[in-house]
């Protein structure tokens, strides 16, 4: 896969944000708030509370179905984040050897449990963020951040980084092709030329970033940051937000996992 296709891959999730499902239609601030509360609740659990976290799958599952977001697209991105938490979780396997519980003859250690919690927690949190991006246009998200009085410099940095990601990749692809065509069949960039290559890439990217910024300014960017129209929060927006908050709090303070186990035991 070439760099251009990878850039398309990066932005393919944002392209879904122009959809018109029941989730897309919700007010961005309600979606942002719901995702924030969900993530905060998920990370508030003890590192061995795997059973307590299981019901939280409700959020990504329901949102994915309602926003018609393809699971494959999300999973591909979640898998990028997983290796990072593997590095954090692996030492637990060796450091926490106390038994947590036994299934048949197999004893599961606390280390295995906390390792599983780290992976699962990452999965839930990354899914929540990805679903937020897939169901809300990026411009609306940053507009809400501005409304929440997040310092403007951070938001501009976020916007420019996001926009310039594709630009940097595009420039590096053009330069790499130009280099390869005169590189005498060499694979990759020769170490002798790497410094100059990276330097030129940065200079070219700065130039393009400046032109893109000019194009953005010409179409009203940055004039008044209240630019994006303030949508009214409707009853259904408030209900959506309240429902997510309620379920998060419910599963946070009620051990639904134990209820389910007891229920299953009773019927079996």
């Amino acid at each position: 896969m070439n760099i251009r296709n990878k850039i398309n891959d990066i932005y393919s999730l944002e392209q879904l944000s122009s959809g018109n499902t029941v989730i897309h239609r919700r007010h961005p601030i309600c979606k942002l708030l719901a995702a924030f509360i969900f993530i905060m609740t998920v990370i508030s659990f003890d590192r061995h509370a795997f059973g307590r976290l299981i019901p939280f799958i409700f959020y990504p599952s329901i949102l994915m179905a309602l926003s018609e977001t393809p699971y494959g697209l999300l999973l591909k991105r979640v898998l990028i984040a997983i290796p990072f938490c593997l590095f954090i979780g692996i030492p637990n396997l060796f450091l926490e050897k106390d038994p947590a519980f036994t299934v048949g003859n197999i004893t599961v250690s606390c280390g295995v449990l906390s390792f599983a919690v780290i992976i699962y927690r990452t999965y839930l949190c990354v899914m929540a963020v990805l679903l937020l991006i897939a169901a809300t246009p990026f411009t609306e998200l940053t507009a809400q951040l501005r409304r929440m009085k997040i310092p403007n410099i951070f938001i501009i940095m976020l916007e420019m980084t996001y926009r310039c990601l594709g630009l940097l990749a595009g420039e590096s692809e053009s330069m790499h092709i130009a280099y390869a065509l005169r590189g005498g069949g060499a694979k990759g960039v020769d170490i002798r030329h790497a410094g100059g290559f990276i330097g030129s890439l940065l200079t070219r990217s700065f130039d393009r970033a400046e032109r893109i910024y000019a194009a953005m300014k010409c179409r009203g960017y940055g004039l008044s940051y209240g630019g994006i129209r303030q949508r009214v929060i409707t009853v259904s927006d408030a209900v959506y937000c309240a429902l997510v908050c309620f379920l998060c709090m419910f599963f946070r303070f009620v051990d639904a996992g134990r209820w389910i186990t007891a229920f299953v035991e009773r019927i079996s």
Partner: peptide
């Protein structure tokens, strides 16, 4: 390429009108 900087053609065309509220 300097002018089209968002993920979709729709968002690019909508960029200006959205900025104007």
């Amino acid at each position: 390429d300097d002018q089209l900087f968002t993920a979709s053609v729709y968002d690019d065309i909508a960029f200006g009108p959205r900025n104007y509220g």
